[in-house]
């Protein structure tokens, strides 16, 4: 049994330097996730601000409408379809860096979910906080920036962490546009060795470890923020 294991391990990871498929893939997975998370936060934050501004003040109705279209379309279609459309249709006749395409697709996708998370966070802050800010002379934007969003961020941190875990795992479909991320790396090894279990288990374990590390840091951050007002 252990000889078989050793032989399988050798064939799947050592021979022909196949581990490089996993390592390179992991690199791309991390790169895509990291930048997509950043893009998702920026997009989501903007959309949430526009939407909650409209809800609070009835201003920016046109932008609010655009945001609602964005949310409906992005949340209503699978990320894989969005990825393929961006790669084959939006950037139809051009050579384009596929990591960039993936960052755009996953970032735009994540932005929609982050927006709703942020918005619910903003709306959950008591209106008295908003009024206290305005009564001191802060304008709408300053009140949002100094008073409402820092509290909202803390409230939504668990949901936000969850969204990024989902995003990390969703990048596994990036292989569809022939990008070599972690799952594709495992697929390539599988296609060479015809051994299903080793590469899949290895890829699964790597995702799991990444999620566990990430969860650990989110929990730490949560604790730190929670300590600050109790």
């Amino acid at each position: 049994m252990s000889d078989k294991f050793r032989a399988d391990f050798y064939q799947n990871f050592i021979e022909d330097d196949r581990w490089k498929y996993m390592v390179n893939g992991l690199g791309n997975t991390i790169k895509i996730t990291f930048f997509a998370v950043l893009l998702g936060i920026v997009l989501g934050f903007l959309v949430a601000l526009i939407r909650s501004t409209y809800e609070k003040t009835r201003k920016l109705w046109f932008l609010d409408m655009l945001c609602r279209v964005y949310l409906t379309v992005i949340r209503g279609t699978p990320v894989l379809i969005q990825l393929m459309i961006i790669y084959f249709v939006v950037f139809g006749s051009m050579r384009i860096d596929k990591v960039l395409v993936s960052v755009l697709a996953f970032g735009i996708n994540s932005g929609a979910y982050v927006a709703e998370i942020f918005r619910s966070g903003i709306m959950s802050i008591d209106n008295g906080q908003f009024e206290a800010g305005r009564s001191l002379g802060f304008n709408y934007r300053q009140t949002m920036f100094y008073i409402v969003t820092p509290q909202a961020f803390k409230n939504v941190l668990p949901a936000l962490g969850n969204e990024f875990i989902v995003l990390l795992k969703e990048t596994s479909v990036a292989g569809y546009i022939a990008i070599q991320e972690l799952t594709k790396g495992a697929d390539i090894i599988r296609s060479r060795t015809y051994n299903a279990y080793m590469p899949l288990l290895a890829a699964g374990a790597i995702y799991l470890v990444m999620v566990m590390i990430f969860t650990h840091f989110v929990q730490k951050l949560e604790r730190r923020l929670r300590n600050s007002d109790h």
């Binding site: 206290a132 009564s135 001191l136």
Partner: peptide
């Protein structure tokens, strides 16, 4: 509004800031 202080029934202090920060944020920023 900067010249019209207001005190609310529910206090509405900013829970994510220390007392000192609550007091100085408006004078500093505004």
């Amino acid at each position: 509004r900067q010249k019209m202080g207001m005190v609310f029934q529910q206090f509405n202090l900013f829970p994510h800031m220390t007392i000192m920060k609550n007091l100085i944020i408006a004078p500093m920023k505004l």
